[in-house]
Design a protein around this nucleic acid. Structure first.
Lengths: 113, 113
DNA sequence: GTAAGTAGTTACCTATAAGTAAGTAGGATT
DNA sequence: AATCCTACTTACTTATAGGTAACTACTTAC
């Protein structure tokens, strides 16, 4: 096996691991929402618009387990919960920007605008 | 609605569109394989190892439709087919690199290595 | 003529992701 | 006393992504 093939296969393995963390319809949208500032449950829902409370709750838990976001409960009245991005989560900012930039380029070339 | 909220929601919409193109277990791995050079069907299969011919065929078609890769048939004996990345596909190189870089950082912090 | 390699296709099945609708709990508002 | 708000949970259903196995068509090698 050549070194070139080996490097390529290694990258594919890392990518497959990484996809397990960011894969899905809602995780990156939630991350974008929280990169733009700490938010409450209802605020994230309003940002993403068509996400159901079930999916939002489920995906927030997964992101918390992976230490990408933090959940903070405030003993105010009524009880409020604030979600925020961790330092690790913040490092996804470049990744997200690259996807967005490519998405805009793709749109221009395919949908032709 | 504030301008900040508006910018965030706009980004989420673009992201959701973009995900439709790159989403799934196999598309980015195929793209990585082809960024590393033109390949034949069997060579991609060997790079990705656990992809079935059905999934590879299906995903290659989707990537071709989105003008990310090109399929070229050679009338040699036996017939060979070469897949290559388009200029548009090449522009995904930075996106892929950022995901990989983040994946390595994530691994270090979570799995602690 | 039998097997192996090229590049897939087809039918069927399963697993998981996501959607829907309703309910819960506590305090505040009218 | 009834309804609203926040932040969810639960049960159930549907849709889609992905997996498995076998088969096709053509050519070359043994």
């Amino acid at each position: 096996m050549s070194q070139k093939e080996d490097a390529c296969q290694h990258k594919i393995l890392i990518l497959k691991d990484t996809l397990e963390v960011i894969q899905g319809k809602w995780r990156l949208p939630i991350i974008i929402s929280l990169i733009h500032g700490n938010k409450r449950f209802g605020e994230i829902q309003r940002d993403i618009k068509d996400i159901s409370p079930k999916m939002l709750s489920q995906e927030l838990k997964a992101l918390e387990i992976n230490k990408i976001i933090t959940r903070t409960l405030y003993d105010s009245m009524p009880v409020t919960v604030e979600y925020s991005i961790t330092p690790l989560g913040k490092t996804m900012h470049k990744l997200v920007d690259e996807i967005l930039e490519w998405g805009i380029r793709f749109r221009k070339e395919i949908i032709g605008k």
